[in-house]
């Protein structure tokens, strides 16, 4: 089956804490001009269908659980590409009060693509590299991530049950 894993890598991209530069560049890279689909790459919208997670931007305290959740929801085998310097090390934002660092603080990373933003060719190259790594993985690979580096403070109470929508009124006339 690993043969086919390499032939149809479906990519989900996640904008973690980036300045949107890498983000725009990555989406532009998936447009017809560079024709990523010739490698079988499909850009899917949700982690449950994806094989490769492409993350742009650094991780901060507010979104690290989101990154972890998205990663956990990808079925194994899966690979992670850290797109751009921020995703690799925290980059420009490394010293911010709220930034935890590169995404490898939260999830295991397979490929780092340097650049601010990386060139489209480098991005495609990164994905092809990720495909190579993906082929070696099996579905028995550990999928759930470790504990988060910073504890999430959960709210004290839950919201009250929402009243039924306005459409659904009981009529007893």
């Amino acid at each position: 089956m690993s043969k086919f894993t390499g032939k149809s890598p479906w990519v989900v991209h996640f904008n973690c804490n980036s300045c949107n530069g890498c983000d725009i560049e990555f989406l532009a890279c998936l447009t017809p001009l560079y024709d990523a689909e010739r490698f079988g790459v499909l850009h899917v919208g949700n982690p449950k269908h994806a094989d490769i997670l492409v993350v742009t931007g650094s991780v901060n305290k507010k979104n690290m659980h989101v990154l972890k959740n998205v990663y956990d929801q990808i079925p194994a085998p899966k690979a992670v590409v850290a797109m751009g310097v921020c995703a690799a090390t925290g980059g420009l934002f490394a010293d911010c009060y709220n930034v935890v660092g590169g995404i490898d603080k939260v999830i295991p990373v397979d490929v780092h693509v340097p650049g601010c933003p990386p060139k489209p060719e480098a991005m495609l190259d990164g994905i092809v590299k990720a495909v190579e790594i993906l082929k070696k993985k099996t579905k028995e690979t550990e999928t759930v991530t470790e504990e988060l580096p910073v504890v999430i403070v959960k709210p004290k109470e839950l919201p009250a049950e929402t009243a039924a929508p306005a459409t659904a009124k009981e009529s007893e006339k």
């Binding site: 089956m1 690993s2 032939k7 079925p75 194994a76 085998p77």
Partner: peptide
């Protein structure tokens, strides 16, 4: 992609978690 791409996709899906 190739004509067989949907076949690859389906076969890949069956190999996943």
């Amino acid at each position: 992609p190739s004509f067989w791409q949907p076949v690859y996709d389906i076969l890949k899906l069956f190999g996943k978690q």
